[in-house]
Design a protein around this nucleic acid. Structure first.
Length: 279
DNA sequence: TTGGTTGTTCGTTC
DNA sequence: TGAACGAACAACCA
C-alpha cells in the first residue's frame, strides 16, 4: 500500500522518464479509473511531475493529471530500455503488460505508462487549474512542512483520538495508517488519547516522530525498483516494511520494552500499540 | 457465505 | 455551523 514516502519515490523516478514526453494515445480500460475527457491530453507534453499529500500530479501545459493509487494502485513505465515501477508491490502484475489489473494505458512518444489497480479504489483525474485548486482545497499542509505551532493548534482543538487527527487529511496531509501507528509508538503516546489531552511537549514530540518515520520511509522507499532488476520482487515497493515499529506486528515483542504488541480497531482502522510504552 | 481489510469521500447524526 | 462518526466503494481472502 503506497503511502507518502513511496509516492514521493515514484514521483522522482517518473519525473526522470516522463518530463518532456508527449502523449500519443490514451486507453481507459476501466471507466472508474479515469475521470475527465481522456482525449484532451493526447498531443500534450508533460512539463513536470509533482506530489501533494499522496497524490501524484502530472503537469501538462494547461491541464494536470492527478493520480491516487489508494491501496492497490501501481504505476509501471516501460521505456525502450528503462522500466520504472512504483506503488503496490506485486511483481507478477509487472511481468505481463497490460494485464488483468491494467486500468489505464498512456502511450507516450517513447515508452508507455500503465496504471494497474486491483481494487479500483485508485483513480486518475484530469483537471484544469480550477479543478486542481478544488482538489487540494480540503487538504491541510503536507506533514513535511508542518511546524510545531500549527500542529499544536490542530491538536488542541479536537477531542477525537489523536491517531485519527494525525490521519485526517484536512488537518495534516500525507500521514497514513502505517506511519500514524509507528510515530505514536516513537512518541510514546497511546493512539486513543483524546487529542486535546496532549501536553505541548507531547504534541511537539509527536510531530517530530511523524516527520522522522516519514523521512525514514522516504529513505527506504528509495529502494523501489527502477531498472532492469525489476523482476526481483525484493526491490518492489521499498523496504520500510522491514523497519515497521508496531504496524502489523501484533503478537510480536515491542522493540523497546519486549511486551507484546496489541491490535485494536480505531475509527475502523487497524491500530497497533504497546500498552507498556504508550500512555 | 459472510465479514474483515484498506484510504478517502460522503451522508447522517450529534 | 461544524465536528464526529459510520457507511460506502471494489475485490480478495480467510
Amino acid at each position: 500500500m503506497p503511502e507518502l514516502p513511496e509516492v514521493e519515490t515514484i514521483k522522482n523516478q517518473l519525473a526522470e522518464v516522463l518530463v518532456g514526453r508527449r502523449v500519443v494515445a490514451l486507453q481507459v480500460k476501466h471507466p472508474k479509473s479515469f475521470y475527465g475527457s481522456a482525449k484532451l491530453i493526447v498531443g500534450e507534453k508533460i512539463i513536470d511531475v509533482k506530489r501533494r499529500a499522496k497524490i501524484l500530479i502530472v503537469e501538462l501545459k494547461d491541464l494536470s493529471v492527478l493520480i491516487h493509487l489508494k491501496m492497490t494502485g501501481q504505476l509501471v513505465y516501460q521505456g525502450e530500455k528503462r522500466r520504472v515501477v512504483g506503488g503496490h508491490p506485486t511483481a507478477d502484475w509487472v511481468a505481463k503488460l497490460p494485464n488483468v489489473h491494467t486500468r489505464v494505458v498512456i502511450q507516450l512518444e517513447k515508452g508507455t505508462l500503465y496504471f494497474n489497480d486491483q481494487r479500483i479504489f485508485g483513480w486518475m483525474k484530469l483537471v484544469d487549474k480550477d479543478g486542481l485548486d478544488k482538489e487540494f482545497k480540503n487538504y491541510g499542509p503536507d506533514i513535511i512542512n508542518v511546524d510545531k505551532e500549527y500542529f499544536w493548534k490542530i491538536v488542541q482543538k479536537s477531542r477525537r483520538a489523536i491517531k485519527l487527527v494525525t490521519m485526517d487529511q484536512k488537518d495534516v496531509a500525507g500521514v497514513g495508517n502505517i506511519y500514524a501507528n509507528d510515530a505514536l509508538w516513537c512518541a510514546k503516546i497511546s493512539p486513543m488519547r483524546k487529542a486535546n489531552s496532549l501536553t505541548r511537549p507531547e504534541s511537539d514530540k509527536l510531530l517530530t516522530s511523524l516527520k522522522e518515520v516519514i523521512n525514514e520511509g522516504i529513505k527506504y522507499g528509495g529502494a523501489t525498483a527502477s531498472d532492469d532488476k525489476f523482476v526481483q520482487t525484493s526491490g518492489l515497493g521499498g523496504k520500510y516494511q522491514e523497519h515497521f515499529k508496531v504496524y502489523e506486528r501484533s503478537g510480536q515483542k515491542c522493540l523497546s520494552c519486549g511486551s507484546i504488541i496489541k491490535k485494536m480497531t480505531l475509527g475502523g482502522r487497524g491500530t497497533y500499540w504497546c500498552e507498556e510504552c504508550q500512555s
